[in-house]
Design a protein around this nucleic acid. Structure first.
Lengths: 143, 143
DNA sequence: AATCAATATTAGTATAGGCTAACTTTTGGG
DNA sequence: CCCAAAAGTTAGCCTATACTAATATTGATT
């Protein structure tokens, strides 16, 4: 299918873009399951209103998104009841939390203040490949 | 306006999310102006069809986005003519390119292979604060 | 047990960012 | 110089992610 007309560089560039676009699709899901796991762990349950507060969006938005996550098999929820993670959601949450922590710790080890590290990690975590994550870990071990 | 009911941690979390959501709004604009600058520099002009090829999306999508960027004052374009950057677009492009290069070089200095560094930099660059970028530069100088 | 506040849902709206298909305009090769 | 291919535009569609406002449900307190 690859268009002969295109340079190898253009094709690589397009592929990278594709990858970033795909990452955007999963970002929000990762943020939600990460937060749901945290809330369950710390408060015993994940309520819609708490998610809305922690995410800084309205309840209606959270409701929408939870429907989608349920459709995609990451959470379960019944009307007016609190939200649970499926096994798949749990796995994604654990992965996300670990990656988040690694990115955050790495930035702090680099000399970034914790406040900024928190903020930047939130955006960066979804775009770090396993290869890069391993380099971050290596650096942490060296320090 | 801050809701007394919310913990400081929840408020900080929500603020970080806000920041990531805002970053998403500018990401695509940055990617476009960065690419437009590159194409103008290397080929003399930025044609819609080239943008579509390099971004891996259809011409219709690029057309849409260019209208938006024009509305937002980052590019100028006339029907059936090639695309130019405004002063503001130029400034954003330069900033983006420099940040992109720093992130990429930093990852490579860390030991990440160039291929992966390219791919990860594409996603990461939009979420790196000036503070973190400066730490990346410091690291590059130390190496 | 009734009521009210907290919580959740629904309906309706908007924007961004994607697509395909059909159309128009430009341009370059014979 | 004309006409076909390349380039650009338009219309119509879709999904994700947000919002407000109105409604419905739950649960705690009197």
């Amino acid at each position: 299918m690859s268009d002969q007309r295109l340079s190898a560089e253009a094709r690589r560039h397009a592929a990278r873009f594709q990858r970033v676009r795909d990452a955007h699709q999963t970002e929000l899901a990762e943020d939600y399951v990460e937060l749901i796991a945290k809330l369950i762990e710390e408060t015993g349950e994940a309520r819609l209103v708490d998610l809305a507060d922690w995410l800084g969006v309205t309840k209606a938005t959270v409701n929408n998104t939870i429907q989608r996550l349920q459709r995609d098999g990451l959470v379960t929820s019944k009307p007016y009841r609190s939200i649970f993670l499926t096994a798949e959601g749990e796995a994604l949450a654990q992965m996300s939390r670990e990656r988040h922590r690694t990115v955050r710790d790495f930035l702090i080890a680099l000399g970034v203040d914790p406040q900024t590290a928190d903020a930047d990690a939130e955006g960066i975590e979804h775009h770090v490949s396993q290869v890069t994550l391993d380099k971050f870990k290596e650096f942490l071990e060296r320090t």
